[in-house]
């Protein structure tokens, strides 16, 4: 694994891209890494494009800027492919992970000639199946963990269970659904 991994998240306000970036920082921290998870803030509106970032490293991280040449990009909402330069600066030896029900052949032409690896996952289908509602952030989190290989999948699931137990202490009924969403996403990202 590279010494420093930089990830950029594209989502829309309300979809949980920021939360997913913070959760990724959380689980990576659990494996002993140095982490940053931070959103780029503007006026906060439901549905507006938002960006969040992760730096994950074996060494302390001092730089405090946005990420312009990410190793990985996660697109939580495929409608952003038409309006936001999601592949801008994305390294060719990196990868992009896109939430879509469409086959890759339909998505790749929208990526402005990006030559790196392209992964897709139908986070809507997974979320509806696991949770009965559309919360794409848990499936997208599992997908990026799988694509980056930053940690063992079993360790990831165990760490997320702990995190959900804490986060949903007052609503334990949603924990299993979220765990199922992670599990399905690890299986289905392609």
């Amino acid at each position: 694994m590279k010494n420093l991994i930089e990830i950029r998240w594209h989502g829309r306000g309300g979809q949980g891209a920021k939360t997913a970036a913070l959760l990724l920082a959380d689980v990576a921290f659990g494996t002993g890494m140095y982490v940053q998870g931070f959103p780029e803030y503007g006026p906060e509106r439901m549905g507006a494009p938002i960006t969040a970032y992760n730096r994950l490293s074996a060494n302390p991280i001092r730089v405090h800027s946005n990420i312009y040449e990410p190793d990985y990009v996660v697109v939580v909402d495929e409608t952003l492919l038409d309006s936001v330069g999601v592949t801008d600066g994305l390294k060719e030896d990196g990868a992009i992970v896109i939430n879509t029900a469409k086959p890759k052949e339909e998505i790749i032409p929208k990526l402005k000639g990006y030559q790196g690896r392209v992964y897709t996952i139908d986070a809507r289908k997974i979320s509806i199946e696991a949770l009965g509602k559309y919360f794409p952030n848990s499936p997208m989190l599992a997908a990026i963990v799988k694509v980056t290989g930053i940690m063992d999948e079993e360790d990831f699931l165990e760490s997320m269970r702990k995190s959900y137990n804490h986060k949903f202490a007052s609503r334990p009924e949603v924990i299993e659904g979220n765990m199922k969403a992670l599990f399905l996403a690890l299986e289905e990202v392609q």
Binding site: L22, A25, D26, F29, Y34, V35, Q36, G37, F38, P39, Y41, P60, I61, H64
Partner: peptide, 12 residues
């Protein structure tokens, strides 16, 4: 401390 840059960034 710097707004958002450190206030809203999760770090070790």
């Amino acid at each position: 401390q710097d707004g958002f840059i450190t206030s809203h960034a999760v770090e070790n």
